[in-house]
Each structure stands twice: as C-alpha cells, then as structure tokens.
Nucleic acid binder design. Sequence first.
DNA 1: GACCTAAAAGACACCGGTGTCAAACGCAAG
DNA 2: CTTGCGTTTGACACCGGTGTCTTTTAGGTC
Lengths: 347, 347
Amino acid sequence: MTGPGAKQPTINDVAALAGVSKKTVSRVINRSEFISEKTRTAVLEAIETLGFVPNPQARALAFRRNFLIALLHDNPNAQTVLNFQQGVLDAIKDSDLALLVRPVDRGSDQMLDDVRTFLEKQRPIGAMLLPPISENDDLAALCDQLGVRYVRIGSAPLDDAQHCISSNDHDVVVEVCRKLIALGHRDIGFVRGPAGFRSAAEREKGFHEALAEAGLKLDDAYYAPGNYRYAAGVEAGEKLLSLAKPPTAIFCSNDEMAAGVMRVAHEKGISVPGQLSIIGFDDSPTATHIWPALSTVRWPIREMGVRAAQLLVPDFLGPVGKAADEEDPAALVSTFIERQSVAPPGR
Amino acid sequence: MTGPGAKQPTINDVAALAGVSKKTVSRVINRSEFISEKTRTAVLEAIETLGFVPNPQARALAFRRNFLIALLHDNPNAQTVLNFQQGVLDAIKDSDLALLVRPVDRGSDQMLDDVRTFLEKQRPIGAMLLPPISENDDLAALCDQLGVRYVRIGSAPLDDAQHCISSNDHDVVVEVCRKLIALGHRDIGFVRGPAGFRSAAEREKGFHEALAEAGLKLDDAYYAPGNYRYAAGVEAGEKLLSLAKPPTAIFCSNDEMAAGVMRVAHEKGISVPGQLSIIGFDDSPTATHIWPALSTVRWPIREMGVRAAQLLVPDFLGPVGKAADEEDPAALVSTFIERQSVAPPGR
DNA sequence: GACCTAAAAGACACCGGTGTCAAACGCAAG
DNA sequence: CTTGCGTTTGACACCGGTGTCTTTTAGGTC
C-alpha cells in the first residue's frame, strides 16, 4: 500500500539511480539509436526497479504535441460506438496514445462550438468521426481550421479518400437484394434511413440497383421513409403491411426499424419469415434479441476502428503495428448475416 | 483557415498584449482574489482577443495533478455505459475536467495489470467503476494503492458508502414482485444473474423476500441460473417452459435474458402476456425492440453518472454544480416501467 | 510630507520531460 | 603517443503553465 500521497518516480530519480544524465534516460525511453548497449541496459534496469512511468503531461509539453486522439460520435447505436472504440484501443494498445471519447449532440445548434471548445482544450493530435456526424462537412472544416487531423468513417468513400474509412454498404445491399430476388421475392418493400444521411442514400441506391438489375421497379406504395428509429419502423410497417397486397419481403435500412416492422407483423398475425421476410442492417444486439432473429448486415466496425487509427496516426503506430500493410483489405467489407427472418415467399 | 501549423497563443502572448506579467494572467485564469478589477478586465480582454485557451498539459504539470477522470467499464450493455458517460459529461461540462473512457476486459487475467498500466500512465485524479467491474475489490485496492480516488457504482451500498453510488435494486424487485402477486400470479419463475455479481444477488434477494412476504416459496423447478446473456435466457426458458406446469410469470434478472425467455415462449406458441408474463431489468434498447415490449426496471443511470462525478471530484465541480445538494435523492431510485409483457395469469 | 500597511503585481524557480549543441569518449591510423 | 573522427553522453535552455517570495503601489495616519 503506497498510500494516496504516493509520488511517481521521475526521470531524475531514474537518472540518479542509473548514474547517468536525465537526457540519457530520455534517449532510452524514446529508443534513440545513439546509446551504448551497456547504458541502455543499466537505465532499463533502473526504470524497472523504480517502476518508472514517464509523465505523459510533461512529455506532451516538451514534445509540443500531446498523445491524445479523440473519437467523436453521435451514433445512436451504442454497441457500434463501443465496438469501434474497442478497435481503436486495439490499434493504439502498445503506443503512447490515449483515447478521448466524446459524444456530440447533433441536434444542438451549438454543437460546433462545443466541439471547438473540446478540441481547443484537449488539442488531440487527431480525431475520428463516426457516422452520422462524420458526414458533417462543417465539422471536417473545423478540424482543418484547428489543425487537427481527422478520419471520417462512412458508408461510402468521400471525396478525400485520404481522410476516410468506408464500408461498401452499396455493394452489400445489392448482394442481399439479389438473394431476396433469387428466393423468389418480387414484391419487396423498402424502409429508408433519414434524409441527408449518406448511409441511407447508399443503401437506397443499392436497393434500386438490384431491383433494376432484375427488371423490377419499386412500387411507390412499397417505399417508406424513416429515420433509423424503432418508431419509424413501426410506422413503415403499418403502411406497408396494411396494403391490400403487402410486400413479401421488406428491406429495412437498419435493425431498429426492422424491429419496428417485425412488431407490426406480429401484431397483424403475419408470420415471419413464412409470409414476410425482413432484413435489417447493422447487426446490432437487437438483431439477435428479437424473434425471429434478424438477418442483417454486419459492419466490420471493430476492424474499421483499427484501420481508422492506423490511418489517423500511422507515425505513432509504426514500431508496433508492423502488420498494418499486410492486412487483408477485405476485412473492411460488410457481410450479410443470415438468421431466421428470411425465407422464400410463402404460399 | 488557420492551417495545420496554427499555434495556440500562450500565456506569454496574453501577458504581453495585456501589458502584465504571466503570473497575473495566471491569477485571472484561476480566479485569484488578489487582482484589481481593472487588470482583470484588461487580461480577460486580451484572452478574448487572442482566443487563448490554457494548455491543459502545462497546467497539469505545474499543478502536479492532471484534470482527467477515468471511466472504467465492462458492462455488456453499451447503452448503459453511454448513458452513464453522458451523465458524467453533463456534470463536468463547465469544469476543466476531461473524461477518459476505458473498457476493461474482465475475463482477462492480466486485467489488473492493464488497468494498472492505464492508471499509471494517465494518472487520472479519480476513476469511476461501473458494474460489474465495480464489484471487484482488487480493483478498488489497486486504486487505493495508486492514490487514485474512485467511486463504485453498484446495485446496493458497499461498505464504504463514501466511495459508492448505488441504486435500490432490492427494493424495486420487491415492489415489482408484489405487483405480480397482486395480479394473481403464484407460480413465478426466476432467472438469476451470474454468480458473484452483487446485482444478481440483490435482485434474487428481493425476489425471495417478496415471495416470502406473500407466504409463497420458490419451487426449485422454477429457478434457473444465468449470466445476463441472451443464450442463458434461452436455456432458462427451455427449462421453465418445458415443465408440466410452467410458471405463469418469469422474473428475469436482466433484459437480455428476458428476450431469450421471450423467444422460447414464441417458439412454443406460448402467448405473452396472455399465458406468460415476463419481466426484465435494465430498460435496455432491447426491452422496447422485442415484441411484446418488455416491462422492466429502469436504472437511473444517467443521473448516477452525474452523482458519481459530483462524489468523485466535488472540489472541481464546486463553482458550477451549485444545485448539487438540492438535488432530489429520489432521482437515484430505479423505477418499474410497465409495457406489454405483463398481465394477470390467463387460462 | 513621512510612515505604515494591505493589496496588487512581478521575478524567478520549478513541474518532468525533450531539443540543441558542445564535450568526452573510444578506437584506428599515422 | 598523437591525431582524427564518429559514437555517446551531458549541460543547459525550453515547453507553458503555477508556487513562493519579494517588490511595488495605493491609500490611510499622524
């Protein structure tokens, strides 16, 4: 028990114990090459003995740059955020970096000011922007202005591919719809994500494309707007499933809305997947918790976290993340998860 | 566009512009009382003009304490973590504090080492431990040893009430079970949380107590172990609902397991709530996404975040958190949320 | 006007590291 | 045993703030 007043040993203590100057200790810490093996060993030993850990604040000051990266998010799916975060942590695990996680309130009109204050105060080296906030160009501009590097996570490449990690939402949706069509579905409903969201647009585009490919066209009656919320799914379900000739399958732009549609199906006594197939997107916990379990698309969100970190601060990850470039690019591909909510159109 | 090379103005720039010494500027920043109104105004003006923001790293170094608090969590419910985090951020919003969020891997045997490394490296003023990791006494001991204050969040007061924020799981469960009994239920099943978890124990205690109060006793056959996971709920459901005389109501120690039980009910064609009432705990997103929507208990988790921050670092929140002591203690009471999964025992 | 005192402001060292540049060292060649 | 040169190491200033102590200033007394 060292007690609450415990004071961390400093670089001076290490220097004294090892019988060298503090600068030499600093060299060892920073893996300078101009150090004799003998001294290095002695210093390392002293560090070990004292349990010395460099003070990150002091380093930040001296280096004129701190070792923080920020994760800005407003994704309603908490699990997604956490998984991404986990990926980032995996990536920076052996580095000196620390991660600041910051939820932002998209709705608020002082959002930009809040973020500005945050960035000015913390001065992270870089920031990672999770969708949907990542689609906000003002935010990107703010980062530019403040000299904070950033990586935007998205569902499709943005213009500046350099700052962007993206999945292939469009392609998976095409693939998934093809499967639906192959199963025999012709009357397929679509529940869209919120206007102004790139992911929503990408998913819709893929949907239309797959239909067109099969010579099908989306009937207006089978189209429902939405906002990624459960309630919107319920509304969409009410609309589509009250039709005289309801669709035999519904593609929902995310899992929450799919759960809403599922509820309406249950209430109306429509069996899933017998009479109605439902597909979601995100592979959120909800997808497995509802019944029947939802076929959905899994975002490689954790891998994206790893990648995003590597893209954001390659210079800090170099020594350890050696496998960075050998990594399979395919890891960033979203995949279709088949569960129990899809079947051929029933009788 | 200030450009990536933009350099933050320092205290020296402010001092020069205001025509005073840097120490005087420091006094203004830190609201020292020995400052003439005139100088204060001049300095504030200079700060405003330059857009000066004190470098937190430098302050941390000079103050010999940084302005970080950490949130350590391993709660599987991401929404819970995020809500708590939001509460903490609300509380520290106007302070100089920043929040480091850190998932910890309970399973790993190097968990303690990981946390130790993290704490030694970041040296936060304090840490908030979310359950279930908050129940780990070794972790608390580690904090003590490293001189890091901490607050444990729990479902029942621990010995050192000083370090603890807790909800009243036990009492709510009693209340909820009374309602079940009042509705006419006599054959009530129970799905437990994982062994060694305080929350699980508290909930079970409350359950037994309510039964005893009504002169009932829990039949062994109606008792199922669990681990807060969906799969455990499914297993429990299989067990209880395969009985010749299945329970008419099942209390599940969390929502995920309740979702599992719900699935089995659906599969077996048992109607909910007609033939079976189900109650969950946590009010996770899952509770509303499944069908029928789950009656459950809501943890005042966001408020707990606020409280935890106030308890952890009252000395940093003083100036702004004026309403701290006027706050309604009742805010920390968990409440029963009635939805559609409960009804009187049907035929 | 000289003197005293409290309030206000400043000088300077220091927090714990790193950058720069000069000094000390080791070893081979002359 | 010098000299020369590249390798190691150290001295010292500095990053951007705060603590301590001293000096200056303002205002009131006699």
